[in-house]
Amino acid sequence: MSNSMQHAEHSVAHDDHDHSAEEVRKHVNRYLLIGLALMIGTGLTVWAAFIDFGKFLPGGESVNWNVIVALIIACAKGFLVVGFFMHLISEKKMIYSVLAFTVFFFAALMYLTIWSMEHSNIVHLQQ
């Protein structure tokens, strides 16, 4: 696997083991680019909020495409922050395992709570 590794990936993998001054220097431009991407993402999400996606995407009114689009953009931005600013893409296994659990329980908390409220008369979806 290591032989077929692309150059870009290799530098990341190297960075992983050694945040040496040389490696860090190479990354400065990348940090700036990501910052720029995040700002563009912000503009994008604002722009998207004022477009009615339900008009031309499948599902029409029944699917709230605006929410989906906004969340996709937010997730992408989040990925950039966590992955590169927080160096998660080159982090140690130990951290990954901790975060994997967290993500799972986070999802459980969100999803199961909402699922179990679906039929409850407290939720006024029908109105």
């Binding site: 909402i114 029908q126 109105q127």
Partner: peptide
């Protein structure tokens, strides 16, 4: 939850 719980 509060949002989906609010009357339509």
């Amino acid at each position: 939850l509060l949002r989906v719980g609010a009357p339509a």
